[in-house]
Nucleic acid binder design. Sequence first.
DNA 1: TAGTCGTGGTT
DNA 2: TAACCAAGACT
Length: 356
Amino acid sequence: MRDDSAMNLSTELLDWYDRHARTMPWRVSPADRARGVRPDPYAVWLSEIMLQQTTVAAVRDYFLKFTRIWPKVTDLAAAEDADVMAAWAGLGYYARARNLLKCARVVASEHAGRFPDTYEALLKLPGIGPYTAAAVSAIAFDRSSVVVDGNVERVIARLHAVETPLPDAKPELTALAADLTPEARPGDYAQAVMDLGATICTPRSPACGICPWSGPCRARAMGLQSELPRKRPKAARPVRQGVAYLARRRDGAWLLETRPEKGLLGGMLGWPGSDWAEAVPDHAPPLAADWTDPGAEVRHTFTHFHLSLSLRVAQVGDVTPDRGRFVPRDSFRPADLPTVMRKAYDLAAATLPPIE
DNA sequence: TAGTCGTGGTT
DNA sequence: TAACCAAGACT
């Protein structure tokens, strides 16, 4: 139940947000919001999907590109899968792009091109979980949903000096966050807590001296502000090995394949090659050629393992490969590849003579 | 439920 | 350098 102190806290934070809100391409400023300007639910949803586990700085250009190419959800719903995956390349967590397209198509076909405006209905859509359903319903539709992301977990854990490690502390933090969530301006409030976490109540070296909540903050009073929230230690990352084959035809076409929908880099373009495991798995090249080893390996770190990828490079004639397809020079853009594949390209292309 | 799923910046 | 971290979802 919200009491006076909770009301004071949310009011203090909204006052701070009115003065310090960050500017973002998808955001309506608190001043404009007060004048009645409503955010576009499509822009709110798109930005929230892109921002999952991803920094604002990384998202900005992708958001502008997507809204330029596909200004409305119905435009995105009508897009080709390969075009959307290519546009997402480099942003990571590619299941988000697959679910983004699924969600756009459901909204277009089953909701007449308009996003549902409740937490429960949003939660049913592909790629929308508890956080995103709460954020979109609050920011786009003024619902007083309880928005709990990593920022909120950190801010609330400090405010109440919750010492239970995450993720066990999640239910407790959600309940505490619910007590603070106001009925008025829920969208601004949600964005305010996240701005506070991103700019002041940061993971390390929080700027308590300029924090609007420093007075009531129990962690600060206890000197625990840099210790909370506690987290369970993560497992060490193993090193996996693999081999990738980069074949270029004399006309400049490259041999690529679309990876399976499920699993790592699902649905993205990649070079044919072995699986990735702690010992190099048995495998065969995608076609017979005079493969050369450029020597240098591609090193890349994923969420749960390090990869050391050996390369085999060849200039080939007009042959039919056992795997993949040749992508013509004119339609091949290295930027359409996920980062590990683009690193391999950068190394391999340097070993081959230029195309006429 | 705990593992899977990217990337680039920061410390 | 290696670890940590960022507006989580899915299975």
